[in-house]
Amino acid sequence: MKDVRPVIYAVFCGALLLAPFFLNAYWVDVLNNVGLYAILGLSLNIILGHAGLFHMGHAAFYAMGAYTTAIINTSYQIPVLWLMPLSGLVAGVAALVIARPIIHLRGDYLLIVTIGLVEIVRIALINNVFGITGGSNGIFGISRPELFGFRIRRPEHFFFLIWGFAAITVFLFHRLENSRFGRALNYLREDDVAAEGSGINTAHYKLIAFVVGAVWAGMAGNIFAAKMTIIAPESFNFWESVIMFMIVLLGGRGSIPGVILGAFLIVGLPELFRQFATARMLVFGAIMVAMMIFRTEGILPPRPRRYPAAVADGGGDGP
């Protein structure tokens, strides 16, 4: 059978690229939210999908990125997009410090610890930790991003910023997946005892996966802060982590197209269901159960790895 996937991807990308010219501001903004969560989902996918770490606290790193941007932008007027690397760095360093002692915890124990992490971060933000987070009011008056002198302001503008970043993310993470590093992660996900036995330093790899995911979530936080211009602790509660978790699992762990589809479903469906008014989340819950029942491994699970003999992998960029 001929592989039709590339054709479908191309059609999808084309449709997406044209979408802002045909949709009204609201639907463009829905797509922006989808894109933002796709980026978050992809970053969590490294941790949850590839390394197999049950991490339900991703909103904590997202929050750190967003707050880093918000605090520095509002106090020193440094342009928002310049702060993106710094946001990623702060989230990454925090992940490194936090993850080191907990990375060896198994399954559900790691799950509750990461839930605890996101709660601790949220409570710290509400209580105005170090006097810089603005407490429950959050931080407001974050400036709009500028790119090559162009001020990004309207949903259509953000569309290209967000999906552009999403495209870069997909490209890089695709490379990562197929590198030595990606394969090592998958190996330790399937059986970390065996992986350890074959000379993979599992703790080291898990830690790197965690940090990479956190850095990316921090950068997504930067975009979120720029888009909203106001951020408050409610935007980073446990529920946000759950949404990211569901995006990865619903779409298919470890599959980039799956995660993007998951973002479309988890973020998009509640918008489509607005006609149900107060019942919209009820319908959403029921559909989630149904989708899981019918596609038990996610809607678009990753395809098994194939290693064509003719194409020699250059060894990847892993250590």
């Binding site: 009204n24 501001a25 609201y26 903004d29 829905v30 939210n33 949903p155 909203m228 106001i230 951020i231 408050a232 409610e234 935007s235 918008e271 607005r274 008014a277 107060t278 919209r280």
Partner: peptide
């Protein structure tokens, strides 16, 4: 014309976009 903001800033931004169209 009613729009649900879910009591959350992100959903509210969407609701506002929707209403403004």
């Amino acid at each position: 014309i009613t729009a649900d903001d879910g009591g959350d800033p992100r959903t509210a931004a969407l609701a506002a976009q929707r209403l403004s169209t």
